[in-house]
Structures are given as structure tokens and as C-alpha cells.
Computed example of a mutant assay.
Amino acid sequence: MNHTPASRIAIIGAGPGGLTCARILQQHGITATIHDRDAGPDVRNQGGTLDLHADNGQIALREAGLLDEFFQLARPEGQEMRQMDPAGTILFHHVPEEGERFKPEIDRGQLRALLLNSLKPGTVRWGHTLQTISGPSEGPRQLHFTDGTTTEADLVIGADGAWSKVRRALSPAVPQYSGVSFLEAWFDDVDSRHPDIADLVGQGGAAAADGDRGLFAQRNSGDHIRVYVIQRVPADWIAASGLSPEDTDGIRALLLERYGHWSPRMRKLIADNDGLYVDRPIFALPVPHTWEHNPTMTLLGDAAHLMPPLGVGVNLAMLDACELALAIAQHGTVLDAIHAYEKTLLPRSTEMARLLDCAAEELLSTELPDFANH
């Protein structure tokens, strides 16, 4: 099967990985269609900030022809990092040097908009929630969507995240709860409304832990800060406490009790938030996660290697997308392209997943990380 313009490539998921893959394919004259379950690009908040590393995420952006535009949007000052104790004493402080661009921060929404705006009109088909995939393994594949529509594809790329529908057609693996849960809190207009928190967090990230619980605060653009309350709890801890996610006052009271020995200044990070908390239990795929080679389907990003959120997820997704797109452009058949891509993808993702296996627990440790290698 040639990767001629007539070959139909369907990418499931319009996250950074899927968008990067489509962009690089288009840079090489290859058409792909992205199907995404969202009704449109602005129907939900895309989440907080992330850092794009020079040795993976930035490589993909360079191949996509978007690196200069990225640096115009990115916040190099966001590379500042503070490690504190529960009293708020700074134990480690990294301030980026002038011109340091190894891993500048960018809001997820800004990155997604950068990628979306680089694509040809009509590349993304919104409101297309994949239900099932049918057809022979050698193709063509039929994609069945929940709105009753179907389409055919010669190659299906699963870029549809943690609970990937494409993965189900390749692998029986299911994400497992890590035992650690994040609870997200938002702070708006921080310099004027929350000056103590703005001063505590600085321009980048600030973390603290006591062995059983932790906090990670991160400045976003637009004078916002997001704080992640990190606990070793059951996945249903809110309901088990007799609360609901909408019960902000009840959750706040419970957190203030659990963090009662932390300093008043640090407790502001969990109690002075604007609006609801957002429950984010951390799931990961079993390690290693591999699948039998399939000539018409493959995976990238969290669909392929869901890991704890320790700064590698989007970077690896975009590197996967870059390598897959280049493999399609450089090989004579889709079959050869998938073989070449997975030959690199699977060992790399297995190695990284083993390094990060159970690493969510490290976020609760009182031992300082080896920042030179993290």
C-alpha cells in the first residue's frame, strides 16, 4: 500500500500528538484527517502549562516548521523551579539563565492553537467520537462514530489519549490507578488578588511534600496559577469521604485538616482557590505495554504509553508523532512505515515507562530529586 494522496490516513484525537502528526504529514504533501470527539476547538479548557524539551517536543516543532512561532509564545521564565518544605522554606531554587531555552513553558491551549492554525482548513472533523473499528487487519478499516456515520481508512493512528478506543483494537491493556491522585485548584489574577501565592510560586513551578502528601504549584500565562494537591488516596476518595466534586467547602475543610501541620502560607495553596476543585486520579498503563504489529493501525502518545504526569507525556507524544509522520513520508508503503516507527517507539517508551513506573510516589517524597537529571 503506497502512501500516495489516495491513501486514507485517519488520526483519532486532536491533542498535541495528533495535530503534530497531521502537520508534519502535510509538510510532506501527505493528507490526513483528524477525528475528535469535541464539538469544536474551544468547548473545554485544555489544561495547564507544560514544558517542551529541546530533545523531544522541540524536535517535533522544528520538523513541523513551528519552532520560531513556539518561542514567540513560550515563557522561558517558566523554567524557574522551587522545592520547598511544608513550612515554605526554599530548599532548592533554579532560576533560568538569560537565553536558556531547554524546556520553556507554554499553556496547553496556546500550543493546541499553534498547531491547529498551522493545518489546512477542514483537517479536523469535530464532533466525531469513535465507537468501534471494523474491517480486516490488512485494510481497509471502517471507523464507526457515535453519531452513526462511518468512514474508511487505510491507516488508523490512535492519538486518542489515556482511554484510547484505537488501543482496544490492538491491545487488551487497560490503565491502572497509580494510588496517587491530583486535585487541581485554580487561582486567577494572582498578582493583584493572591499576591502571597504569586510570591510563593514565582514565575515557574513550586513543589513541596511531607512523605504522605504534596503540593505542586505552576504559573500559567494570563496571571493564573494552578495548584495540584497530591495525595496517596483511593481513586474514589472524594465520594468515600461523603463529598461530591462540587462540594468545594467540604473538600477544602477536609484538605485543611489533612494539611493541618503545614504552614498557614502553604495552606493558602489549597484553600484560597477560585472556583471548584478538579479531581484528577493518576492512571498508567502496565509496563511494558506492547502490541502485535498491525499493518493498518498504530498508536502514539498516551494511547501507546500512558505514564505518570512528570513532564514527559506531551513531549513523547509529539516526538512519536514526528517520527511516525516522517516514517510515512520516507517509506514506500504504510506497512514499512509502521514497522520502522514501532521499532523505535516500543523500546523507547518501554524504557521511559520503567523509569517512571510508580514514580508518582516520588512526588510525595521529602527527598530532593536529582534536578540535574529530572
Rank of each mutant, 00 (worst) to 15 (best):
M1G: 15
T4H: 07
P16Q: 07
T20M: 13
T20Q: 14
L25Q: 00
I30Y: 09
T31I: 12
R37T: 08
P41G: 00
G48M: 05
L52R: 04
L52T: 02
H53I: 10
H53E: 04
D55Q: 15
E63V: 10
A64G: 13
D68R: 06
P76W: 09
G78T: 00
D85K: 11
D85E: 10
F92T: 09
F92A: 09
H93M: 03
H93R: 08
H94L: 06
V95E: 11
E98W: 13
R101A: 11
F102N: 15
F102Y: 15
K103M: 10
P104C: 04
P104M: 02
E105Q: 15
D107M: 13
D107G: 15
Q110W: 00
R112G: 04
A113H: 05
A113W: 05
A113M: 00
L114I: 03
L114C: 00
L116Q: 10
S118F: 04
K120N: 08
V124Q: 03
W126L: 05
H128W: 11
T129H: 07
P136N: 08
E138A: 11
H144M: 06
T146L: 11
D147F: 02
T150C: 13
T151G: 12
V156L: 05
G158M: 01
A162T: 00
A162Q: 01
S164V: 05
S171E: 05
A173W: 00
Q176T: 05
Y177G: 11
S178E: 07
W186N: 14
W186S: 15
D188G: 08
V190I: 02
D191S: 14
S192G: 06
R193S: 06
H194G: 08
G202Q: 06
A207V: 15
G214C: 08
S221A: 13
G222D: 14
I225C: 02
R226F: 07
V229H: 03
V229N: 00
Q231A: 03
R232D: 03
R232H: 01
D236P: 00
A240P: 06
A240G: 12
S241Q: 08
P245L: 04
E246S: 13
D247L: 05
T248H: 13
R252S: 09
L254R: 02
L255G: 08
R258E: 15
R258N: 13
S263D: 00
R265I: 11
M266Q: 15
R267T: 06
G275K: 07
V278Q: 13
V278L: 13
I282Y: 01
N294T: 10
P295C: 11
M297W: 04
T298E: 02
L299W: 05
A304V: 05
L306G: 09
M307C: 07
P308H: 06
N315G: 12
L316K: 09
A317R: 10
M318I: 03
E323R: 14
L324S: 13
A327N: 06
A327K: 09
Q330M: 12
T333Q: 10
D336F: 07
E342I: 04
K343Y: 12
P347E: 14
R348G: 04
E351Q: 04
L355I: 08
L356F: 04
E361N: 09
E362T: 07
P369S: 11
D370V: 05
F371I: 12
